[in-house]
């Protein structure tokens, strides 16, 4: 391994902490927890929807981070590496917990059934200022719709639209090509839009 590979990149906000970890990895554990516990817990909540499962996910993620910290090679940002571990644990856990094969979302299911079903006016939930439509009920609706997404679409949506990772970073975290990330993200967004639309249509 070259020296360059062992030096944290300057753009990594965790670079200094990682340098300190080289001489005493255990000393940096509390700071790593402080930096990432909330983000990982929220990632877990969006992915699992249950506090207990989200807590298990965070604990298992940190256990693996601490165990394999020595093996982190700065090929990516440290944050991306942590999320890679968390996403992989999450997907494994969910695979174990159910037997049904994962549903695919096809673009066709989001197309209007006929010409008459094409919306001709921007609905109020999309036309009003964001702060006027965003209330607790809508938040719950949205969270429920996110949990309805099949895992492979949900994880992409959570990383891209909630956690704010780029297409490329999400691809690195999930071991997907950027094209695959884009396809899954678009289908996930269409699914959510459909759920929001039905919610408002039923009002």
């Amino acid at each position: 391994m070259s020296e360059a590979n062992r030096c944290p990149t300057k753009s990594d906000p965790d670079a200094e902490l990682l340098r300190a970890a080289r001489s005493d990895p255990r000393a940096v554990f509390p700071e790593l927890v402080r930096r990432y516990e909330r983000a990982l817990y929220n990632f877990g909540m969006k992915m699992c929807g249950v506090a207990g499962d989200a807590e298990d996910l965070v604990q298992d993620t940190f256990l693996n981070v601490f165990r394999y910290l020595d093996g982190f090679r700065n090929e990516t940002k440290f944050k991306n590496w942590i999320y890679r571990i968390a996403a992989s644990i999450c997907i494994k856990k969910r695979r174990k917990s159910k037997y049904a094969p994962e549903r695919e979302l096809s673009l066709d299911e989001f197309l209007p059934a006929d010409e008459a079903a094409v919306e001709q006016a921007v609905p109020s939930w999309a036309a009003l200022p964001l702060d006027r439509v965003l209330n607790n009920e809508l938040r719950h609706r949205l969270e429920a719709a996110i949990l309805e997404l099949p895992d492979k679409y949900r994880v992409v949506l959570v990383l891209r639209d909630i956690e704010g990772f780029s297409t490329e970073e999400s691809g690195q975290i999930l071991n997907l090509t950027p094209a695959n990330v884009k396809v899954r993200l678009h289908r996930a967004r269409l699914f959510l839009r459909d759920r929001l639309k039905s919610y408002y249509d039923d009002e």
Binding site: V122, W125, A126, A127, V133, R193, L196
Partner: peptide
């Protein structure tokens, strides 16, 4: 517009 709002809500 509706897709854009969906993303903004997320």
């Amino acid at each position: 517009t509706t897709l854009q709002r969906t993303v903004a809500l997320c």
